[in-house]
Write a protein that binds this DNA or RNA. Structure first.
Length: 435
DNA sequence: TATCCACAGGAAATCAGGGTGT
DNA sequence: ACACCCTGATTTCCTGTGGATA
């Protein structure tokens, strides 16, 4: 009765939990390694903290602080510093408590939603619906709300990943509107704080915005390995139980993350993942082997998650690349091939429409940007100008992810008819010589 | 040397699907 | 029911282009 059909082994969940509880414990407080955790001190960010504190201090007297920008690559502590300051500001014993509205422009990605998000964060009762109203109405409502609710205080609007907002249409307009909020407010003041990881994004900024937002900016340099070690040490003390970390673990995490432009978030992720792997292996301690495995895993996890999160059409485009590489590894893949194969396989999936070449071209660009494939524009003379496309990731990994997507799973063994025509084979031979 | 292929990739328009207030 | 709003995905239309070939 207990016998499993596939093999003689049966997983006993009760036994598992029993062992788990008896087993060694690694973590004390794993939250300390989460990106959302705000530590009591931020090592190596004194200059920035001082700068921002000086800029924003006047909020405590009800004066409007200047708007400013924070630059720095991912994981250099921009967001953490802002959150830290907001916390400290709130702890001061004054009558005026500034409001902080945090907006991640990658999540709250359209002008309408930004206004709605600000409104809904301030207003407890009346919420603005996720869509439907005209923007200018919301803008007026927001002004009214700010004057009544934030009365005599300051409202900080933190726009994280502001560069993404600018790239979109309407991004400059909404930003301009936000910088001009104060002109329309009587009872309160607002202050904008932009956070960006691209230094060059100022060039695409509307000059009117630049004058009010871009005059002052604070740069967050990347951490070096030594600084990362300090950060990790502080967090590890909170996160892990004593003595579980072997002494080479933190230096290794720091070194690996330092290679990637000194990304502290990555370093912390690495440390956490290593701890989790050790825990799962019922190990008493975390050693460098786990860090190395965590490093590999994180790369893969990241890519796999990304692929799973893509729209189905994008997944199909990737499937097209996969199928060609699988059945004809030496085939030189060009955009037209992807289009053909996509048109073919889309027929096997209900509810999927035919796409134009233009759209496919966009998906190819997206996949390239994500580092999943590489595409190089090349002119093949009389055979036109196109992109030469290659998978940038081991094909096994791609296969694994795609097979986990229900709708696509069924077509993974479909050999594209394109590869079987003599015309294509001939053309491919010419391409080989041209490259 | 002119030609011409097979696209690249920008800009604007369109469509469908979520909503609104009246 | 109606006129209208916002968004994201896609289409339509378009101009541009590197280099092998005739």
């Amino acid at each position: 009765m207990l016998k499993n059909d596939n093999n003689n082994y049966k997983f006993s969940i009760d036994k598992f939990y029993k062992n788990y509880l008896k087993g060694p414990r690694i973590f004390n407080n794993r939250d300390a390694l989460e990106p959302s955790y705000i530590p009591h001190e931020l090592p190596h960010r004194d200059v920035q903290i001082k700068d921002i504190a000086e800029k924003t201090a006047c909020a405590l007297f009800g004066n409007a602080p200047p708007s400013f920008l924070c630059y720095g690559q991912t994981g250099t502590g921009k967001t953490a510093t802002i959150r830290y300051i907001s916390q400290k500001l709130a702890q001061q014993n004054t009558e005026i408590k500034p409001w902080w509205i945090y907006i991640n422009c990658n999540v709250v990605s359209t002008p309408y939603r930004i206004l709605a998000h600000i409104y809904n964060t301030i207003s407890r009762e009346e919420k603005i619906p996720p869509t439907g109203l005209p923007k200018d109405i919301i803008f007026k409502k927001l002004l009214g709300l700010l004057d009544s609710k934030v009365r005599n205080s300051i409202c900080f609007l933190v726009l994280d990943e502001i560069d993404i907002l600018i790239e979109k249409k309407g991004g400059n307009e909404i930003l301009y509107d936000l910088t001009r909020l104060n002109e329309n407010l009587d009872q309160c003041k607002t202050s904008l704080i932009g956070i960006s990881n691209k230094l060059k994004f100022r060039k695409t900024l509307d000059p009117r915005i630049l004058s009010s937002l871009g005059e002052e900016h604070i740069v967050f340099p990347s951490y070096d390995a030594g600084e990362l070690r300090d950060i990790l040490n502080k967090r590890a003390k909170i996160a892990f139980r004593e003595i579980v970390l072997k002494e080479d673990v933190i230096p290794l995490c720091a070194a690996l993350a330092a290679k990637e432009h000194g990304d502290a978030r990555k370093a912390l992720q690495l440390l956490r993942k290593a701890g989790e792997l050790a825990e799962r292996a019922q190990s008493k301690s975390v050693n460098s082997k786990y860090v190395e495995r965590a490093h590999d895993d994180l790369e893969k996890d990241h890519i796999m998650e990304y692929i799973k999160g893509m729209p189905l059409q994008a997944q199909l485009v990737l499937t097209a690349v996969y199928l060609i590489s699988k059945y004809s590894p030496d085939h030189i893949i060009i955009s037209g091939d992807i289009y053909e194969v996509h048109s073919e396989i889309k027929g096997f999936i209900p509810g999927i429409r035919q796409l134009t070449k233009r759209r496919i071209s966009d998906y190819i660009s997206e996949l390239t940007l994500a580092g999943i494939i590489s595409a190089e524009v090349k002119s093949m003379g009389h055979y036109g100008r196109t992109k030469i496309i290659k998978l940038d990731i081991e094909i096994d990994i791609i296969e694994k992810v795609l097979s986990e997507i229900d709708k696509i799973q069924a077509i993974l063994n479909h050999k594209p008819t394109l590869l079987q025509t003599d015309k294509v084979k001939l053309k491919n031979n010419i391409f080989k010589k041209l490259i």
